[in-house]
């Protein structure tokens, strides 16, 4: 472990008053940032500085700060969730940066994710896709069959879990040059397609979710694979292929 030290950095941050105003990149200087701090703690430090100067702090989305809620976003130096891989922005640490660095911080850019303020975007398009079919239609009575009555091959369960590990952060859309949401939708479709409980509604599910995805204004998948690289949970492209299969199957039925 390298011992923590303090660095001075320059920040170029997208500032935008609200959804309808025009934004621009603003420059800030921030000194004495501990390399043991997380990236968001660095932004806290900046905001503390701004508040003390009676200036408006930078709005950014964040919540759990342990890489699971999917609330944090940020396009840092040209990459979704910053330069490290397999993590969210809240898990990015300042030890990835050097003294004197200039760091670009921008919001997710997508027609389907309009900016609300500064670095905060509206990702409710994902919710609407989920509402279109991302579920098993079972009542919550608890009077279902015993959990062990349908054995599920471990391999399928593991694959379903790996697809279900998606945190819905939107990095896939942000990083895709086409602004496509196929990795997100593919992961959801895959999770259910792999489990016996989800197979019953598979046809309707994939058609409905894809229809909603298209309506939201996401771009098309051209298989660049950037989403898989930038996904903090390492969701595999295989999920997109599986969705494509499911979609073709459903379309010819």
């Amino acid at each position: 472990m390298s011992a923590a030290k303090n660095i001075n950095i320059n920040l170029k941050i997208w500032r935008q008053k609200n959804a309808s105003s025009k934004g621009s990149m603003e420059t800030y200087k921030l000194d004495n940032v501990s390399t043991a701090s997380s990236f968001l703690e660095m932004l806290d430090q900046l905001n503390e500085q701004l508040v003390n100067e009676k200036k408006e702090p930078v709005a950014f989305d964040h919540d759990c700060r342990e890489g699971i809620c999917g609330m944090c976003s940020l396009y840092i130096n040209g990459r979704a969730h910053g330069p490290d891989t397999g993590i969210t922005t809240c898990q990015l640490h300042m030890r990835m940066f050097n003294d004197g660095d200039t760091i670009y911080i921008e919001p997710w850019r997508s027609k389907a994710f309009p900016v609300i303020k500064d670095l905060v975007v509206d990702r409710s398009a994902f919710d609407r896709i989920q509402q279109a079919g991302g579920f098993v239609s079972v009542n919550t009575s608890g009077n279902t069959i015993d959990a062990n009555s349908i054995p599920v091959p471990k391999d399928d369960a593991d694959k379903a879990f790996m697809a279900a590990a998606c945190i819905g952060c939107g990095a896939c859309v942000a990083t895709c040059k086409n602004g496509s949401a196929m990795l997100f939708v593919g992961a959801k479709v895959s999770q259910y397609a792999l489990l016996p409980q989800g197979k019953v509604e598979a046809t309707q599910r994939v058609l409905n979710m894809v229809r909603q995805m298209d309506e939201e204004g996401f771009g098309n998948c051209t298989n660049t694979g950037a989403c898989e690289i930038e996904c903090p949970k390492g969701i595999s492209l295989e999920n997109i292929a599986r969705m494509n299969r499911e979609f073709l199957k459903a379309s010819v039925k």
Binding site: V138, P153, K154, A157
Partner: peptide, 12 residues
């Protein structure tokens, strides 16, 4: 039972 029916991928 409920969660499995909903497609929660528990470890197996």
């Amino acid at each position: 039972d409920q969660c499995v029916a909903q497609g929660v991928p528990f470890a197996r």
